[in-house]
Amino acid sequence: MSMIGEYLRVTAAELDRAIQDPDWALDFVEAVQDSEEESEPAPAEARYFSTYKTWDLLRFLLARAEFPVNVIHGEEPFAEDEDWGYGPPKYLRPERVRLAAEALRATSYAQLISGVDPAELSSAEVYPLGWSEPSSLEWGRPWYDGLTQFFEAVARADDAMLVWLD
């Protein structure tokens, strides 16, 4: 089974409801995923976004860059329910989304991978394993670019975000 990073854009009212009723939030996530599955909107127009298996690569690179917001795992838990996948889901409030969007915009993927030896990823057991090729670092570029676009759109709307690994 794969572990994938997932994100859902939510309004302030939806965030409040998710915090109060995590079961509703899980149903809401599934409904949005289903509705966007066929249309596959661009990250800037989507309510749902996934970094797929690149989440741990991005976590490693962003931690190395001392990124100011935990965009990979979220920051504030709102449910204990294991139906969400690996660990409790968390959220980012609009002000944290804005800070993350600014930092993502200011940090290019080239900056993130500059000076990184793929052997570091192997030593750190970054998921999914298989970092022997120097070009393997390029695998994360399109997901990072999409994540940046997604965060920028959510920040422009002054929305919050649910974050989880599934």
Score class of each variant (00 low, 15 high):
A31F: 13
P118M: 14
V116D: 05
A110L: 13
S39H: 01
L99H: 08
N70T: 10
E45G: 10
W139A: 10
L162W: 09
T11S: 09
E82C: 07
V10D: 02
L15S: 00
W84D: 03
E120M: 11
S39M: 00
D158Q: 10
P134Y: 15
L162P: 05
T11E: 02
G130N: 04
T107V: 04
E6Q: 11
L165T: 12
P128W: 03
Y86C: 07
V163N: 06
F151C: 04
E45Q: 09
G140D: 12
F151K: 02
D166F: 06
L129R: 14
A46R: 02
E40L: 11
R105N: 11
Y127C: 07
E36H: 02
A101T: 05
W24K: 06
G85P: 09
G115H: 01
S136N: 13
R9H: 04
Y48Q: 00
F78Y: 13
M3R: 10
E37A: 09
K53G: 08
A12E: 01
M1T: 10
P89L: 10
A18T: 02
D158F: 05
E14N: 02
P134D: 15
F49S: 03
A103C: 06
E102G: 03
E95K: 06
E45H: 10
P68F: 09
R93Q: 00
A44L: 14
E45Y: 05
A153H: 10
L104M: 08
R96M: 08
I4V: 10
P68R: 05
S114N: 11
V163I: 12
D117Q: 11
S123C: 04
R96I: 03
A124M: 12
A157P: 01
P68L: 07
D27P: 08
D83L: 05
M3D: 13
S2Q: 00
V29P: 01
R9M: 02
G140R: 08
Y7S: 04
D21N: 11
E120W: 06
D83M: 02
E40I: 04
A46L: 08
A31S: 14
T51F: 07
A100W: 06
E75S: 06
I72A: 12
T54N: 12
A65L: 08
S135Q: 13
D158W: 01
V29K: 14
W143K: 10
D158L: 02
Y52L: 12
V116L: 07
R59D: 15
G87I: 03
Y86D: 12
H73E: 15
W131E: 14
S136V: 14
T148C: 11
F28D: 14
S35Y: 09
A155N: 04
R141G: 02
D117R: 11
A155I: 05
A31E: 15
R9C: 06
R98M: 10
E138Y: 08
Y109Q: 03
Y109H: 03
A100H: 11
D145V: 09
